[in-house]
Design a protein around this nucleic acid. Structure first.
Lengths: 341, 341
DNA sequence: AAATATTGTTCAATCGTTTGAACAAAGTAC
DNA sequence: GTACTTTGTTCAAACGATTGAACAATATTT
C-alpha cells in the first residue's frame, strides 16, 4: 500500500521533533541551520519520499520557477531546436519551461500571454507571430515587472531584450554569393514587410544589389507569407515576367521549396538556369535534390543566449525593461541549388 | 504610473465593503451569492484589472489546472499537431498545457516526469521515448493518483489509458497495397522491436506476407532507429543482397527518405524498380519527388481523443488507473513512390 | 405570530511553504 | 560575572485563494 497523503515538511519536522521552519531552512541550505540538522532532515526527506510542493513555495516566495516560452510554431526545426536549447539551459538553473504555441495567430498569442501570466511564470520568452502588428499585449508583461525576452521575431517598439541574427547582413551574404555565381537578375520572395526581420531582409537585399551595381527591379520582389503554397504561386508569377530572373532568394525555406517545385515542373534547371537560395536551414533543405543553399541561424546559440539573458534579468533586482539587442552573424550554407560554378 | 502591487480578492472586497470569501464565491458563480453582488464584484474586478492568482487557488483547491504533455520530439509534424489539438481541446476546459520534450532520451523523460509532478500538474499525457524500456518512473504518476494518458508510443504494462492507431492493421494496408502493385519481395525497415508499436508493425508485416502467400525472408527485415541516416545505411545493406527487394516499407518517413536517397543515388527507379512506402505522413512526403506513399495517423483526432480521455478521468472522482485502449484505424495515403500501375 | 426555509454573507480554518523577528543556549570578551 | 556575539532553533505571520459552517436577514409556510 502506497502512502495516502503526500509528505510535507511538517511530517519531516514531526519525525525529527523540530519545527517546519527549521526543516524548510535545512532543505534550502540556510546558513543558520547546523550541518547535523541539515543532514538529518535530508535523510528523512529522502526516506519519506518528500516532494516539495512548488505551488506553496511559489505562492509564498513569489517565485514559480516557471518560464513561459511562446513559439509561433513548434513544428519548425528552427524553433524546436531553439526551445530545446533554452530548456537545457534553464533546467540547469532550476527553472521549468512551459511551451505554448501561437500558431502564427495574433489572437492565440494574446491568449498565450494571458495564460502564462495567470500561471505566474517568472518570465516570458517570445517570438512574435507573423500576424502580430499590435504589441499592447506585451505591455502587460512589462507592467507585471517580469522579464520579457524576444528572439528571432522581435520588435524595437516593445523595448525589451532581443536576440536574433543579422537579417540585413544575411541578405548581403546571399546576394553576394549569387553575384559571385554570375547571377544578374536576382528575385526575392520576401516575407511580410510588416515584420521587422523581413523588412531587414528586404533592405539588405536592396542595398546589396546596389552595392554590386545591379539595377533594382521591383517586379522581382514578391511579398509572401512564405508558405510552400505561396512560394509556388509567387514563383509562377516570376516565371511569367517578360524578363525572367536568373536567381531566386526566398526569405524562408518552405517558400524556396515551393519555388523549386515550380521550377522543376517547368523543366527549368536549378541552378544552371535559375539559382535558388532559402532561409533557415530547415532539415529538408539538405535532404532534397538539389540540396538548397540557405542561411543557418545558429539555433542552439540563440537559445542559449536567450536563456542567459533571462537569467541575467531575473537575478537582477530592481531592473527595468530596456531595449537591448544581441545580433548574431548568420552563416550562409552553400549547397547545390546555387552552385553554378 | 501603473499599480504597484497586484490586485487580490481582498482589494475587491475592500472596495465593495464585503468579505474576500464573498468575492471568491461571486467570481466562481456560487449560487449562494446574489446576482447583484456578483455583478458588482465582476465590475470592480474588471476595473482593478484583477487577475486571479492560480497558485493560491491551486494550493487551496489542490487543482493546478495544468496538464503536462511529454513529447518525444516537438520537431515532428505528427507530435506537434497532436499537441496542438490537445491544447485546443484542454484550453476550452480551462486547462493550460505544459509541453516538455524527452528528445527520445530515457533520462530526460524521467526528469520531465519529475518536473511535471513537482509543478503539481493535474495529469500527464505522454508518448514514450524510443529508448524507454523500463517504466517504473510512470508508476510514480500512477501512485500520485493523477490521470496518466499515453498516446502513440504506449505500453500495456503501464496499465493506463492509451490512444493510438492500429499499427498491426497499418502494416496490412501497406503490404496489401504493395502486393496489388505486383511486388513480391517486400523489405521492411522496422523500428526498434523493443517498442510495442514497432513490434506490432513487424507482426503485421509478417502476417500480411503470409496472408498473401509471400515467403518470409528475414534478410529483408532491417531493424533501425528510423532516422534518415540509418535509413540510408540499412537501404544500402538491402541493395547488397543477392536477391534485391522490389519494395521497401519503412516504419518511419525519415527512414523512407533515406531509402529514397540511396535508391536515387544508385539510379534505381522509384517506384518502377523498387516501390517505397513510409509511415507518419510527415509533410515532406508530399513535397518531394517522387511523393512518398505513407500512413496517416489522424493526428488531430488522436489529440482530441487524448484530451477527452483526460477530461473524463480527471472529472471522475474515485477512479483507478486501468488499461484501456482506443485504437484508430490508420489511413494509407497512396502517392507516386508506390504507384507501379 | 411562531416556526421553518431560503438567501446572502461572514468567520475562520486551511493548503504547504517561506521568512522576519524573537528567543534560548553556548561561546567569547573584558 | 556581566555584557555582547554567535549559533541553532522556534514562533507566528504571511502568500492569495477556497470552503465548511455559522449566522443574520428576509421570505414562506402553517
Amino acid at each position: 500500500m502506497k502512502s495516502k497523503r503526500k509528505t510535507t515538511i511538517k511530517d519531516i519536522a514531526n519525525v525529527l521533533k523540530i519545527t517546519p521552519s527549521a526543516v524548510s531552512r535545512a532543505l534550502n541550505d540556510n546558513p543558520r541551520i547546523s550541518d547535523k540538522t541539515k543532514e538529518a532532515v535530508k535523510k528523512v526527506a529522502l526516506e519519506l519520499e518528500y516532494q516539495p510542493n512548488q505551488l506553496a513555495s511559489a505562492l509564498r516566495s513569489g517565485k514559480s520557477n516557471l518560464v513561459g516560452v511562446i513559439v509561433p510554431k513548434t513544428n519548425s526545426y528552427f524553433f524546436s531546436t531553439v526551445v530545446e536549447s533554452i530548456e537545457n539551459e534553464l533546467n540547469k538553473e532550476g527553472y521549468n519551461v512551459i511551451i505554448t504555441q501561437s500558431n502564427e495567430s495574433y489572437k492565440k498569442e494574446c491568449r498565450n500571454i494571458q495564460t502564462l501570466l495567470q500561471t505566474q511564470v517568472d518570465g516570458i520568452i517570445a517570438s512574435l507571430a507573423n500576424e502580430t502588428v499590435d504589441f499592447s499585449h506585451y505591455e502587460k508583461i512589462k507592467s507585471k515587472g517580469i522579464p520579457l525576452i524576444l528572439y528571432d521575431r522581435g520588435e524595437n517598439d516593445i523595448g525589451v531584450d532581443y536576440i536574433g541574427i543579422d537579417d540585413y547582413e544575411s541578405s548581403h551574404l546571399v546576394v553576394e554569393h549569387l553575384v559571385e555565381q554570375g547571377c544578374k537578375r536576382i528575385a526575392h520572395l520576401a516575407g511580410l514587410s510588416q515584420a521587422r526581420i523581413y523588412k531587414n531582409r528586404i533592405r539588405g537585399y536592396v542595398d546589396a544589389l546596389e552595392k554590386h551595381n545591379l539595377p533594382l527591379d521591383t517586379d522581382l520582389i514578391k511579398e509572401s507569407n512564405l508558405t510552400l503554397e505561396d512560394g509556388r504561386k509567387k514563383t509562377k508569377e516570376l516565371l511569367r515576367l517578360p524578363n525572367r530572373p536568373d536567381a531566386i532568394y526566398a526569405a524562408g525555406d518552405y517558400a524556396a521549396l515551393g519555388a523549386l517545385q515550380i521550377l522543376q515542373e517547368n523543366n527549368i534547371k536549378v541552378p544552371e538556369e535559375i539559382a535558388l537560395v532559402g532561409f533557415s536551414n530547415e532539415p529538408f533543405t539538405s535532404l532534397i535534390k538539389p540540396t538548397i543553399t540557405t542561411i543557418s541561424q545558429h539555433n542552439k546559440k540563440i537559445g542559449k543566449l536567450v536563456a542567459k539573458q533571462f537569467l541575467k534579468r531575473v537575478n537582477d533586482k530592481n531592473w527595468k525593461p530596456v531595449l537591448t539587442k544581441t545580433i548574431l552573424k548568420a552563416e550562409l550554407i552553400i549547397r547545390d541549388s546555387s552552385k553554378k560554378i
